[in-house]
C-alpha cells in the first residue's frame, strides 16, 4: 500500500498551525503548483486546505480521520462491511459524508474550556 499523506503533510504545516499559517502554506503551494500544470496535484492541495482550513474543519478531520483514501476505496469498504444487510442510498451517503454541525462544535469547545 502506498504511503498516504495527511493534509498537514501535503501543505507542510504543523498540526498546531494557525488558520493564517495554513492559508499562507496553501497559497504558496498553489503558486508553485498552479491548476494548469498538474490538475490532480492541485486538487489534492486544495482538498487538503479545505480539510484543515479552520477550527471546524480541523475538529471534523481529527474526529473522522480516515487516511485520505480515494472515494472508490471508501465505497468498496463500505460495501464490504455492509454486504449482509442491504443499505439504502441515503444511509450509504450519510455514512460516507459523516460530519458535525456548528452547534456540536460550539458545545464541544465550551465544554473543554470549562474543564
Amino acid at each position: 500500500m502506498n504511503i498516504i499523506k495527511t493534509p498537514y503533510q501535503i501543505l507542510d504545516v504543523q498540526p498546531s498551525a494557525t488558520d493564517a499559517e495554513i492559508k499562507q502554506a496553501y497559497l504558496s503551494k498553489v503558486k508553485n503548483n498552479p491548476p494548469d500544470r498538474d490538475q490532480l496535484l492541485f486538487q489534492s492541495i486544495h482538498d487538503a486546505y479545505i480539510a484543515i482550513k479552520d477550527l471546524k474543519s480541523r475538529i471534523s478531520y481529527d474526529l473522522f480521520t480516515v487516511p485520505s483514501m480515494s472515494f472508490d476505496e471508501l465505497v468498496d469498504q463500505a460495501l464490504k462491511t455492509t454486504q449482509q444487510n442491504t443499505i439504502s442510498a441515503r444511509q450509504l451517503n450519510t455514512l460516507l459524508q459523516l460530519s458535525i454541525d456548528d452547534s456540536t462544535i460550539q458545545n464541544a469547545i465550551s465544554r473543554t474550556k470549562k474543564q
Binding site: P35, Q39, Q43, F71, V75, S88, A89, L92, L96
Partner: peptide, 12 residues
C-alpha cells in the same frame, strides 16, 4: 466549487 472539480456520489 474550485476548478477543476471531481465529485462522486453513490446511488442504488
Amino acid at each position: 466549487s474550485v476548478l477543476p472539480s471531481r465529485k462522486t456520489e453513490a446511488f442504488v
